[in-house]
Design a protein around this nucleic acid. Structure first.
Lengths: 137, 137
DNA sequence: CTTGACCTTGTACCATGGTAGAGGCCTTAC
DNA sequence: GTAAGGCCTCTACCATGGTACAAGGTCAAG
């Protein structure tokens, strides 16, 4: 009928234990069970797991990911709250992108310095990242 | 003469213990000591700490950051190795940026859906992130 | 010359995000 | 009907990245 936890784990390339862990932590909904107690998943469980993994790679914590997944609009009732959360998250993502771009610029300059075989007494990375260091959060 | 660990901690907005921890982990060089054993830092220690914090926010582990800091070109001798590391890191950063952009697009679509007060039976986030899910690393 | 703020080392503890193993039940194939 | 493999729960352990506390030395002010 549905997918077993092992099938889901294989398709999503995660550990079985991890799926159960996510269920405990509220990231995966508790699936239906067979009469004998086996978990039965719908195919979208695989998509959800892949989403979680991607979001994690992007630096979101499991708690944040739980929130992201909870942003699924429920009947328009909580729509404003959802919108606010989405906006906040988007702002955060935007900032991360900007910082990564600065990092990338620094890395590119380092590569260029290496290619140019400059005497390179100094490392551009530290200084370049310091440039934009007007953060305090 | 130099900065005390407390001064550095305050300026870089990190815990004193954290600085010592970084020293143990090889992210901060062991500074000179006063005759009585107090650590004495040069002002660039603050910059280094801020770099570490920024890199962490970008999703780099302490080990990766240690590597990044080690990329400081030493006399051109290890220049090719440094260049390769920088390139690899840049590729990784580029990928992260792309994924974050997809996440941002999903969030923006969600916001738009909220604003439009659509019936919003479905959440765009999960599906949109699934779109680009041609990853396996 | 003592009080308080600061420093030292060492060890222990915490949260997050898993991973592993024990002990036991289910299922399918021979 | 029995063995292999999958699943169940529960508990314990691991790495990472800190944070806290104890016991004690240092230093500057009064």
């Amino acid at each position: 009928m549905g997918l077993s936890i092992g099938q889901v784990a294989r398709e999503a390339a995660v550990n079985i234990q991890t799926i159960r862990y996510y269920e405990r932590r509220g990231l995966m909904p508790a699936p239906r069970r067979t009469p004998s107690g086996y978990r039965q998943y719908m195919p979208d469980a695989v998509a959800r797991l892949r989403f979680i993994k991607r979001a994690q790679d992007l630096g979101f914590s499991l708690e944040e990911i739980r929130d992201l997944l909870a942003l699924r609009v429920r009947h328009g009732s909580a729509c404003e709250a959802v919108e606010a959360k989405a906006r906040a998250k988007a702002a955060l993502v935007k900032q991360k992108i900007q910082e990564l771009r600065r990092m990338q610029a620094a890395l590119r300059r380092l590569v260029a310095a290496c290619e140019a075989r400059e005497p390179t007494g100094e490392c551009p990375i530290l200084e370049l990242l310091e440039e934009g260091a007007t953060v305090d959060a």
